[in-house]
Design a protein around this nucleic acid. Structure first.
Lengths: 201, 201, 201, 201
DNA sequence: TATGAATGAGACTTCATTCAT
DNA sequence: AATGAATGAAGTCTCATTCAT
């Protein structure tokens, strides 16, 4: 079921991303995905067991790519752990421009899937978060990040902020130019140094 | 359609919250809501135009309450703007214990609704965010919050973090005891002072 | 699910009998049954859980009637146990004229149902056979039927013969006049006295 | 379409028998037959026009064999016509042990096919019945069987009884040992001499 | 106002059959 | 001749919504 025609499987996944992002998983019809993929309705079921399974496979696939890309970019980033975190943040937000459908899909469908599609665990999502967690932990070991903050809390806070921003950007800036750099800088500023005004010294 | 029997309208909204939170909006059946509310299926339609309209009315109602409560608690909180922000954060996270259904509903259904239920704008959500924004703006005017951070960005970041945490707490700590205070403190610490280690002085 | 509208339930069962008898269970569409019953497709599912359940309910209903009628007629038949057996045989075969659809339904669908529709046990069929068995056993006790024959075997043989004949009659004599009496007499003659020629004495 | 590869045709028929007997014709998938036969789905259609045609071909094939075997065994049976009838009965019932799939297939699918698969006439079945009919007619001519019984009725009764018994045996005694001889003897006793007790003389 | 039986459009999915390889 | 991926028609069943009572 996985190897009949890898190219067709990819086409179906691409179509599913587009349709799910545009209409939402529950409003999307399998026949719409098929049409978008240029295959017959029944063909979907040669590659995926059900509509739910298609959703999950799509998650796995896209999150896997995102994880790979994040790991890659982080590895190539010179500088401190904070620079790497900035890079990961930039990558995440860049989805809004690079792959708007994926951005909408992740921000909107990720939650539903976790809770309502079967008992899907979403291991790839956990793996993605681990990238951030490892950076934070490394930063703490290196003395660059305060040891008093809870790494998991930091990760959730950062991911939450990213997710919310990506959603907002998706909704408001689709087809508009956004200055992502400013957003990334602003977010890093907030998370790195806090919002509290401090007396100059 | 709004005044026939206010008590019954409330019963239906309560039932809808419970059912939508438990099963998800798309998996929930109108008849389940009716059963939970102790009314006939058709009665739902005397109070709400459609299932979508019920969802939206539920949002409006619950967000309105949350807004009122937030405004109230903030007004009663003594101390600086940062203390008030802490209070708003504490209120938001307290939903996981005070009203778990509402917590799940807000975290999971809010997004879908915004994007796929008709063209609903979610004005109450905007209003809720404004509470945070006004606090941040006030903090900046008072010199307690850095003027270099973008207030809207701060608000999105904080709300995003809250939303993600509430979701995580909902999923993992339902029926378990959570130390919310520690979470609130940790989150304020992160947002107020940042994660970067600073040289002692 | 059983009492909403008994009259409608009956209409659906009647329609199902007609459609299943005419087209066969597997070729019959639920929508055809609905149309024949004069209800919407979905209405079927208010009264029966599934197409399979409808088939089973139909069996139960018709066999129950047949059992009641057989018991009744047997009770009212004067004469020996053999006369009562003749009466039961006559009743069974009379279906071809009285209720041709039921005749076809019983002869053709009864078997499938036993084997392939879920794990349906067909208790009513067993009950129906018991009527014959009890007659045979009574006959043996009374010395009217040979004690050396196995009652269950006799019953199976008689029912099998009846079933086959009913099927043949259904297929060949639909809309034609049949002399059922001759068939009943002939069958009783065979089963009562055997086919072997015996020397006159 | 018949001669391409006779061995493969046979393999498909064997597979069809097994699958149809196990799952029932309507629940059986062509792909299951193909898999069982060790051929590709499409190959089935090189040997048979359709699933229906496969069913019919299977009937023809198996009935032809049964007819041949019955004729053969009858020819080889010494003794009277009644002995030959006993032999034919024994052969029919022996299917439950010799070829349980065929037994189930004949008892369960034969009827459906006659009525619902196209307008198939089932000439082989008629031919099979003729074997019994010829025996009965011969018996009557020889004075061994009463001339007052209707040969066709006798044949239908016997075949019906056999069919019903084979079905019952198939369902209850699959994988269990059965004393077929006793059943054959019992059945012959019933049909030859009837069930009625007669005064000793 | 309230009911809940009835509706019927529409979705997911299956599977007999085809046809390019 | 053989394959098996692809097709797409068609069926069962669901459920938001209606409306007669």
């Amino acid at each position: 079921m996985r190897d009949k025609n890898p190219e067709k499987r990819i086409r179906i996944l691409d179509a599913a991303l587009k349709v799910f992002a545009t209409r939402g998983f529950y409003n999307a019809k399998v026949s719409e995905v098929a049409k978008e993929a240029g295959v017959a309705d029944g063909t979907i079921y040669l590659y995926f067991e059900s509509k739910d399974a298609l959703l999950i496979a799509l998650f796995e696939d896209r999150m896997q790519r995102l994880i790979a890309r994040a790991n890659d970019e982080i590895a190539r980033t010179e500088g401190t752990v904070l620079d790497k975190i900035r890079q990961a943040i930039a990558l995440h937000l860049s989805l809004v421009l690079d792959d708007p459908d994926l951005a909408e899909f992740i921000t909107v469908e990720l939650r539903q899937s976790g809770k309502f599609v079967k008992e899907y665990d979403n291991p790839k999502f956990t793996e993605y978060l681990r990238i951030f967690r490892d950076l934070v932990l490394a930063g703490q070991e290196q003395g660059l990040i305060r040891r008093t903050v809870d790494a998991r809390l930091v990760v959730r806070a950062i991911f939450g902020a990213l997710d919310e921003l990506l959603l907002t950007l998706s909704l408001t800036h689709r087809n508009r130019s956004v200055d992502l750099n400013a957003t990334v800088d602003g977010l890093c500023d907030i998370f790195f140094d806090g919002i509290r005004a401090r007396p100059a010294h």
